[in-house]
Design a protein around this nucleic acid. Structure first.
Lengths: 238, 238
DNA sequence: CAGTGGTCTAGACCACCAA
DNA sequence: TGGTGGTCTAGACCACTGA
């Protein structure tokens, strides 16, 4: 673990343990350099991490204040997989793999997914259940050449975990879009919708690897009344 | 303008002018230090800015690649006001101030907004219209002591612009939540909803200043089929 | 292997805040 | 005015990539 990560993680733990309380100041950068035997820059890199996470607010001429941290904040800024999410919230969730197949990208799918025409991808449809009720329906397209050994068993567990821990595939970034769409046949079939429901929340994502290549296209469809998205946003400098 | 901001903004312009094209490499950090007569750290700070904006992807041992940039990407990661948004998209929008009043926080509002009991706030209800149709309904609560001169005229234009440019009030961060809610009476009254619409998208935000104080609570209600939220997300390091 | 970005140091000066 | 965070420099070594 890098030095600045170590410092950041110690400070983070101490914030959550209320060693440093909400609206109070962290030790100054100068003090932190002495506390951890690091240069100022290293300390600042650590503080930047905490700032990006929304844990502290730095203020010139004053210090770094601990921000109010909702301990049950839904942590979906950044990229996080469904399984990680549920576990961090303390829910036990199940995943049912409805279908798992290899397909070739045709013109229609090229438009939708942006994968190159003729390339082979996995097409995976999964139900996400909590207490036996299906609240989320995931449709994934994944480049087969990057993970040829992917199987329904892995898809039932966590695909991301497999990609990262087993294949060492590192995901870099994603572009996501959230809209509200009309209910489709598959939604009716695989989601436990109310009869009157006409809409679902749709989250479409394109996921890229570090080499800038498109790796995954996903559409995740959520029952409207179970959907919640929270974000910590900083004012953009323009 | 700081040196690293200057470097970042030059590079950004060049990316948009296709001097550096998508999927191509930027000059190396070493080359950039010579190009701009800056230290490596300064160059790196500039590149970090571009990375945070989702314009480039840096890769150890390789270089910084320009990411595909959708020129019409809806830029709502970070904090941006409605007016800024519409203008950046090239739409002409109007705002109607439905009501503008000063109220005192009672127990019910304390729970909702988190403003202290007994404090005075402005309560502003506004319709956002495009082509004469109301698609968005905004309800704002703002601490009166920080902007006592706020008026309906200012609210009709842009509150954020006034706060930043006139009062020099700097907004630091916000916590936002997006959900789908049932339509209320006010939605029916002030939004041009279809008869069958049962839901609206609700975006609730708490907005904080640099001194960590809560300044604004807003609920923004959107017609479901006009709502779209996009986000550029990086994989979180955990 | 040479070249890239990633981490880290030590030190300087500046801008800002509170007392 | 002293202490804080913000910017910037010059230099070092490490980790990784592609040829």
């Amino acid at each position: 673990m890098k030095k600045y990560e170590k410092i950041a993680s110690i400070l983070e733990q101490e914030i959550f343990k209320d060693v440093y309380k909400e609206n109070e100041l962290l030790p100054s950068e100068h003090q932190l350099t002495e506390l951890y035997g690091a240069s100022r820059q290293t300390v600042r890199t650590a503080l930047k991490l905490l700032e990006d996470k929304g844990l502290i607010q730095r203020r010139q001429g004053f210090g770094s204040i601990v921000i109010a941290h909702d301990k049950l904040r839904f942590p979906i800024s950044g990229l996080t997989s469904y399984k990680e999410l549920q576990e961090s919230m303390g829910f036990v969730s199940e995943t049912e793999v409805v279908s798992f197949e290899t397909i070739t990208i045709d013109e229609k799918l090229e438009k939708l997914t942006q994968f190159p025409l003729g390339s082979e991808v996995f097409r995976i449809l999964r139900q996400r259940k909590i207490d036996g009720k299906a609240y989320v329906l995931d449709l994934d397209y994944l480049r087969k050449d990057r993970c040829p050994e992917l199987s329904p068993e892995i898809a039932k567990d966590s695909i991301y975990q497999y990609l990262e821990n087993v294949l060492g595939l590192h995901i870099a970034y994603a572009q996501k879009e959230i809209t509200v769409d009309f209910v489709h046949d598959d939604d009716r079939k695989y989601l436990d919708l109310g009869q009157q429901d006409r809409h679902v929340v749709s989250i479409k994502s394109q996921v890229f690897l570090f080499d800038n290549s498109l790796f995954q296209y996903t559409e995740s469809r959520h029952q409207v009344d179970k959907f919640r998205f929270t974000e910590f946003a900083r004012r953009q400098k323009r």
